[in-house]
Amino acid sequence: MQRMFRWIAIIAIVLGVALPVIPQIIWSLAHRWLFPSLLPTEWSMSSWEYVFSPSSRVVEGFMNSLEIAVFVCILSILVGLPAARAIALNDFKGKGIIEWLLMVPIIVPGIVSTLGIHQLFIRLHLTNTFIGVSLVHLIPCIPYMVLVMVSVFSNYGTELEDTARTLGAGPIRVFLNVTLPGILPGLMVATMFTFLISWGQYITTVLIGGGTIVTLPVVLFPFITGINYSNAAAISLVFVAPAILVLIFTSRQLGQDSAVMGGFGRL
């Protein structure tokens, strides 16, 4: 029975993830592919040449997306880790409200909050800046970071840290020697989520970045609505590559009945 479910799961993953990528690969290499041909009648590398040429701005967008995503990961660890720890291990007044507020960005569409934030960012001169775009990406990222880490921290408890304290370790050494190694698998998964959410942001980037900050989705979007399927397919593949790498990288964590996934029970 379990074997059967395993196979169903594997087939579903293949159908859902791998299969849609195959036509993309073919499209990206096609020069002429007209109905009713099963495969392109003419092949060419021109789309890939275009992708890596400066005029397409794909490489520029890729680097911008990467820099912003990494920066957002750092910010969301700085904000989310202490918040998650406080929620997981302490009881305090207004905890329920804070927990709810942290989850709100999942409920409220990003475009709504971003429109409001736009006004504020103009006044703070944060529009059209790297920092501004990073900050607005942080909004949808925080809930996932907090969600995952709350469950990691509540599973981890405080006994090990307390033990380390009594053995002569100060707060910083407790964190570096005991807490961090203990929560690292969970933290890695949470960071991957954060990375992917920032990586996929389009509307928020366009609104706050105002065309000055060009990320990969911003580059990609006109192609999806355009007519050059080959170029769109090639850029899509560049866009999806990190996601697939992350999926492979974290699948081990996600597969187990680990504390990492426990947080999603709260949604």
Binding site: G157, E159, L160, D162, T163, A164, R165, T166, L167, G168, A169, G170, V178, P181, G182
Partner: peptide, 21 residues
């Protein structure tokens, strides 16, 4: 005096050992 300077070592009931070491 902070915990780490007291030399009062506690052995807890659960979560006994550092699992990463």
């Amino acid at each position: 005096v902070p915990t780490e300077k007291r030399g009062a070592v506690m052995v807890f009931q659960k979560h006994l050992l550092f699992p990463t070491m």
